[in-house]
Design a protein around this nucleic acid. Sequence first.
DNA 1: GGCTACTACGTAACCGCTTACGCAGGGCAA
DNA 2: TTGCCCTGCGTAAGCGGTTACGTAGTAGCC
Lengths: 368, 368
Amino acid sequence: MADRSTIYEVAKRSGVSTATVSRVMAGGKGFSAATRERVRATVAELGWVPSGPARGLASRRTGIVGLIFPDLGRSGEAEEESPLYVDQVIRGAERAATSAGDAVLIAATQTASGRQLALSVAGKVDGLVVLARSLPDEDIVAISRSVPVVMLACRLGRGGPDFVGADSRGGSRAITSHLIEAHGHTDLAFLAGPERSPDSEERFAGFCDALLAAGLPAPGAPAATGDFTEAGGRQAMSALLARGRRPRAIVCGNDEMAMGALIALRTARLRVPADVAVTGFDDIAAARHVTPALSTVRQPMRELGERSVRLLLDRIGAPDAGRRSVVLPTELVTRRSCGCTIRSGPRGGQASEPEAPSERETDREQPG
Amino acid sequence: MADRSTIYEVAKRSGVSTATVSRVMAGGKGFSAATRERVRATVAELGWVPSGPARGLASRRTGIVGLIFPDLGRSGEAEEESPLYVDQVIRGAERAATSAGDAVLIAATQTASGRQLALSVAGKVDGLVVLARSLPDEDIVAISRSVPVVMLACRLGRGGPDFVGADSRGGSRAITSHLIEAHGHTDLAFLAGPERSPDSEERFAGFCDALLAAGLPAPGAPAATGDFTEAGGRQAMSALLARGRRPRAIVCGNDEMAMGALIALRTARLRVPADVAVTGFDDIAAARHVTPALSTVRQPMRELGERSVRLLLDRIGAPDAGRRSVVLPTELVTRRSCGCTIRSGPRGGQASEPEAPSERETDREQPG
DNA sequence: GGCTACTACGTAACCGCTTACGCAGGGCAA
DNA sequence: TTGCCCTGCGTAAGCGGTTACGTAGTAGCC
């Protein structure tokens, strides 16, 4: 841990100037092969690690992209279970960044100190990916004035930053249509997430799309509302049954709620999928392990992470190009709970059927 | 995206020097309340975000810690399933860093470019956590000469960097003892992971510890060997049965192998736990969802991540202190597969019994 | 009144790189 | 021979902060 050596020492010991050392390290041109080898040898000998800050300061490029995400796994225990969403996104981002020679700086916002944290991160990176609602809109706007920002999963209005997301509405429509067309359902209900959740709204909209497309009447509002938790799903389902309403198919806002619904239905001695079909959304790990295995819609989380970083890097390279959006298709995953039987695959079975609202790119929109 | 404003503009507009701006931002002393407010207002007005690189260069402190981990989820599909290990560690690290005002830079090594990547990261951070075998030992040694390093889960010999890990051996001993003492088993076998895996070796050692402690003979080698995959576990178990060996309890090197063993046993029409008890190691998410639910040993992954960052930050603050090690206790998780019945808890049931090889800290060892 | 101590700042020297610019020497065409 | 370009390198001016040091002004005390 002797003080890190500097480019000056390297230069002196190899009998060249710092400019030449820098050029050799950058791999560019402007030096002879002999010089290159001499410098390289010295670097190895000294174990010189160039200072990132110095490099960043001089070149205005840190080689780091930031990823800000909401800290869901609050204080409690249940954290292990919940969102591998975020983890997948992180991995995807890491992959895309690494393959471009950059690294990823991650930070979870705790609602409270969010702004402070985000600013601190913003100063250290070349650009920022902001996942979902991890930051108030006004903060995002503020930050995007000093560093390129890509919003992931939650878009801002016109003039806002670039956007990457999944086609929730299309996915919801697809799984609803599947219930209608493949299983002949005509009496369907939607179990929504929290009132003002954009995700939940999109999914409900897709649900309605499918009903209308099939010539069925679409409800004005979800049949019941939960909070995206298993407990919430159970309560919502119970409430629905208590009201004497017993649809033949339940489309849930997410997997947790669907799992809650399964419990409520079992409690009510109803069989799934024989008496009532159930579907979820997200394809969390537990979805394939519950009984019956949950049919659901998968969002390509890892790829979302990758794409958002790629888009960000593009943006950094071309700060003044028009706004871009990337919407990736979701994937319909049919298991037992919708009524499908399992064509057992090599790994223990799970039939899936790629639904294809093909990827839309770049809704160019001049900044105004 | 107008060019980021600098401290000079802030200083000029608030009629003070850059030194004062810097002091106000640092929150220290040496300025009047009026000046403070004036500077703060200007900062807000300009939307000034201090440059991380500049700050880092001047203060020799980037406020970033690096985390290097092996990129397991290779190219294929199965990645979703596998190790949320790493994810938990990442989250833990993020948490510890954030609460200390730092951020985490992550990078996965792809075996190939590992060294290059690690050096690039090393230059950008104040210190580095290296998870498991994500880097060859010699690279770790080289890097640790220019930046503080904490090794997570895999320790180096004497004189190596600080270390944080879980008590694998103790955990393995605990679960084996549980099979012996709580369920009266005397005929136990160990299904090992890859030959040269230190993890597997530790766990086998713990298995032997428990046997010896109970006065039972300890085998010289594992009864069968797999590769830490489900398929490997299945084959190892089948091979064992094919040899005519049918122990009453199987202690597996990890959960995946245990799940493979469950399959092989079911194929052989043996009941678990009635005919044969089975245990795993790691407590992956699937462990609680298989049938029967898998008894296993949990490593506190998130906490390992937290502790390694905390230790790293300590080290950064005191570069010359003696080497330190932190070993966290593992936790015995008893479910159905060992023969325990489930005392159903509020969330659907899982009895666990904290085993307590109490945390050892600081095996001081003066650097030689 | 003179001295010390303290507060509230300003000045300017770094921190360790990158890179625009300049310059010497050699090759080559006119 | 002169003029020009190209290669291979050195010089030095930043990049945008932090911070040691200096200084003016004020207060407190003898």
